[in-house]
Design a protein around this nucleic acid. Structure first.
Length: 463
RNA sequence: UCCAGCGUAGCUCAGUGGUAGAGCGGUCGGCUGUUAACCGAUUGGUCGUAGGUUCGAAUCCUACCGCUGGAGCCA
């Protein structure tokens, strides 16, 4: 006897006609007994929705079926028919139910709702919950939409190294990569001799693919990276993780304005794409996570982002009459509370701040003609803060070397990076978009730990 | 790393010095084309850990651990 090949529950529910013989497989969400049969809510993760299975008492193993509990895995064959009950269009009347993997009353996911904090402790089971199923389906779609956006625009996807030798990329603490025996390291003149390490030098996990992406952009014109990034900062907040994914486009012959345009276009594109392709998931977020989510996202897609120079932002903040905990003055970094005021109170929309004082930005950013500011930009969104950070890069060799010296870096250590300016240099720009922060913004989920399947944060690398 | 708050049943929480509680869940029974079903019964605890104060500590004190929120750093 040949079984029909399995149909996803998503496809089954989208059927336009009854199907005599269909097979589905998944995990039991709930089961209710009726007089002569049992209702099983089955979910296979293909969508938020469950398929209602009618298990009649004529089934050979009906006694076992009645003992099925939440969490069990089963394979069901039968007929897809119009549902007699309200609440669903289709249901599956089972001819056969194979119990693949049992479960019992200790299964932690109950019919009742759970807090995200509790579910975080069972990260291996939480994908089976409605909320996390939705988050991870949207995560997948968002990743796809990112590639689609860049590929449609002629960008080349490049892979920059995860292991890097650059330790001065100006972005946070690094995780060391080494095969040296830490209990008995080789030494030279009392110091650990990294010349004997695996790569014959000190190496780290990447904090950014930007420097390498610049090399590729100055050959392929428009490139982007999309990969994991690691920061060893002891940050304990709802929007920092030690391991996260970042998108870094880099464009040759592009100035800061082109850069800001692209960032804005990308953010809007991604929101619109997920709104269109994950409507069930977005409805769930709007209902259970953030009531104002859809309204805010639509507003962001419809309106141009506010662009404001750093110096003007400082003036606005000074004149705001608002009582801030931290001082605001030209030359100081904008604090979270200042960013919040700009996006949430003053403009009520994403804000791109640009042209920052050179003193508070890294060495690779291009010095403006005023000699005081660099062509940097931060895209701030309500509720999250900085979601994009980017700049026009310093393409002039002399100026770049001067920046390095000012940042107490030795240009000799960056020979290859300077070569890019020595041979066929060109104005170029790029930015970094935090993938998880974008996902938080789109889903409304307020903690970065809940948009990563198995999050890594200081003191926590379980699973 | 700093500041604040919280750790009590599987989950969400109440209990503020004197016999450890509720709702939900689970289990059993009833009813039922149900759908966070309904009705009844029942099950459930080293009160985060270790010290201390007290006749007596879930409750007060100290330390540690964990979680949450905020800050710094950033994406």
């Amino acid at each position: 006897m040949t079984e029909p090949s399995p149909t996803s529950i998503k496809d089954a529910l989208q059927s336009t006609a009854p199907i005599d013989a269909i097979q589905v497989q998944g995990w039991v969400r709930t089961r209710r007994d009726s007089k002569d049969f049992s209702f099983i809510e089955l979910n296979d993760g293909s969508s938020l929705r469950n398929l209602q299975i009618i298990a009649r008492n004529v089934l050979r193993n009906y006694a076992d079926v009645q003992r099925l509990t939440t969490g069990a895995s089963i394979i069901v064959s039968g007929a897809l028919v119009a549902s007699q009950g309200k609440g669903q269009k289709w249901e599956l009347v089972a001819d056969k139910i194979d119990i693949v993997g049992g479960s019992d009353e200790s299964y932690p996911l109950q019919k009742k709702g759970h807090t995200p904090e509790f579910l975080r402790e069972i990260a291996h089971l939480r994908p089976r919950s409605n909320l996390f199923g939705c988050v991870f389906r949207v995560r997948s779609r968002l990743a796809f939409a990112i590639h689609q956006f860049f590929q449609e625009r002629g960008f080349i996807y490049v892979h920059t190294p995860v292991i890097t030798g650059s330790d001065c990329e100006g972005a946070g603490e690094l995780f060391r990569v080494s095969t040296i025996d830490i209990k008995n390291p080789p030494r030279k003149n009392g110091e650990i001799d990294y010349a004997q390490d695996f790569f014959a030098r000190q190496t780290y996990l990447t904090v950014s693919g930007q420097l390498e992406a610049e090399a590729l952009a100055l050959a392929l014109s428009k490139v982007y990276t999309f990969g994991p990034t690691f920061r060893a900062e002891n940050s304990n907040t709802s929007r920092h993780a030690s391991e996260f994914w970042m998108i870094e486009p880099e464009m040759a012959f592009c100035d800061l304005n082109g850069n800001m345009d692209l960032a804005e276009e990308l953010v809007k594109y991604l929101i619109a794409d997920v709104r269109k392709h994950c409507s069930d998931e977005m409805e769930l977020f709007a209902k259970f996570v953030d009531k104002e989510l859809l309204e805010r996202l639509d507003f962001v897609v419809d309106r141009p982002f506010q662009r404001i120079m750093y110096s003007d932002a400082v003036d606005l903040l000074k004149k705001s009459g608002e009582k801030f905990e931290f001082p605001i003055d030209y030359g100081l970094n904008l604090q979270s509370e200042h960013e919040r005021w700009l996006t949430e109170k003053r403009f009520k929309c994403p804000v791109t701040v640009f042209n920052f004082p050179k003193e508070i930005k890294p060495f690779y950013m291009r010095l403006n003609d005023d000699g005081k500011t660099v062509a940097a930009m931060d895209l701030l969104v309500p509720g999250i803060g900085e979601i994009v950070g980017g700049s026009q890069r310093e393409e002039r060799q002399e100026a770049l070397e001067e920046n390095m010296r000012r940042h107490k870096m030795d240009p000799a250590d960056y020979k290859w990076y300077l070569d890019l300016r020595r041979y066929g240099t060109a104005p170029h720009s790029g930015f970094g978009l935090g993938f998880e922060r974008m996902l938080m913004f789109i889903t409304g989920v307020p903690n970065i730990r809940d948009v990563i399947p198995f999050a890594r944060t200081p003191g926590s690398a379980e699973f």
